[in-house]
Simulated assay, not measured.
Amino acid sequence: MSEQPSGGEPQGGNELAGRFFDAAIGMLRRVRDEEAEEIAAAGTLVADVVAAGGRLFAFGAGHSSLAAQDMVYRAGGLALMNLLAVPGVVGVDVMPATLGSALERVDGLAGAVLDCSPLRSGDLLVIISLSGRNALPVEMATSARARGVKVIGVTSVAYASETGSRHASGTYLKDHCDIVLDSKIAVGDATLTLDAIPAPFAPASTVVTTALLQAVMATAAGVLSDRGVEPPLLRSGNVDGGHDWNARVMREYGDRIFYRQG
């Protein structure tokens, strides 16, 4: 966490903005350097599943869902990535917003969701949870793996040593994944403090987690290309020919895409 400079001098808005950018850039560099092997492994696993005919899914609760949604139906992204949505949990559109946080702690919800989902053995599920301590992401990982689904977990490993698990097993998301990507986000998420402000502020988990996962997707595209397989990528619909390109990809991979009708 970036601390206030010594002396406690007033901080202008521009200076605080600069401190936030510096903090975010520092975390991105740390993830790039310290998670390089895991990013390569995760990208290779994604490519393996695509090449073998499997499907790709991503799940995150609350703000963790933003990074999951960023991979779905995205220009420059893999067309096969689907959002695994849990009603009341994805995003903060549910009212009251606190309901989403409460649902993350409900035992058994993950199994019910997977029972009604199209996931099957041989697929891959990316589970994003900053803390990894709640029942929903833990059970999502264990239930998915029990069904023969490969799991990539994206979490801050620091939470496992600084907070208690909210799952009956006492375990965390990181304990139930084929590959774990550590976002390195400090417990509490916020990056800045100021003597005049009683709470830390300026969270960066969305910035870092989104970049981390896009690095994995870039790696997967490269691995597929190296194997002589054209990555099933989408193009922007706002460039000439983009819609025709995407229509072709969706026809070719229609049985592995679940965010479209028909």
Rank of each mutant, 00 (worst) to 15 (best):
L194K: 07
S156T: 00
H176S: 10
V50P: 00
D182M: 12
G18Y: 14
V207N: 03
A247L: 14
E230G: 07
T98G: 02
G53C: 11
G254F: 12
T163A: 10
E15F: 12
H63M: 08
L130Y: 05
A158Y: 07
G108R: 06
V229T: 14
L28A: 05
G108T: 01
L56Y: 01
G241W: 08
P203K: 04
L124Y: 04
G54R: 00
A52Y: 02
A23Y: 07
S143D: 09
R145G: 07
H243A: 02
S129R: 05
D178T: 02
K184W: 15
V154N: 02
V94Y: 11
V151Y: 05
D48Q: 01
S121P: 00
F57E: 00
M95V: 15
A41M: 07
V208L: 03
Y73Q: 15
G77W: 12
H63T: 12
E34S: 10
A186N: 09
D255I: 02
A110C: 11
N82H: 05
L28C: 10
S225I: 13
F57Y: 11
A135C: 10
L173R: 00
T206Y: 08
A24P: 04
F258A: 13
M1N: 09
G148L: 00
G88N: 08
V157E: 14
A85C: 01
F59V: 09
L109K: 04
D70T: 03
R147L: 01
T193R: 13
F57D: 01
A61G: 15
P198H: 08
Y73W: 11
Y172P: 02
L78W: 06
G241K: 06
T206W: 07
V154D: 06
T155Q: 07
G26Y: 14
V208S: 02
A199V: 12
F20Y: 12
D255S: 09
V239T: 13
V46A: 01
V89T: 06
V149T: 08
I179T: 10
V157S: 15
R120G: 01
G188W: 08
D255Q: 05
S156R: 05
S205N: 06
R55N: 00
A160L: 08
R32N: 14
R105Q: 13
A190L: 11
T210Q: 03
G76R: 06
S165E: 15
T163K: 06
D107S: 15
D182N: 15
R120S: 08
M140I: 01
P231R: 07
T98Y: 09
H63P: 05
R74P: 00
T209I: 13
V239S: 03
V106W: 12
V72P: 12
R235K: 15
A158N: 06
T209M: 10
A168E: 15
H243S: 11
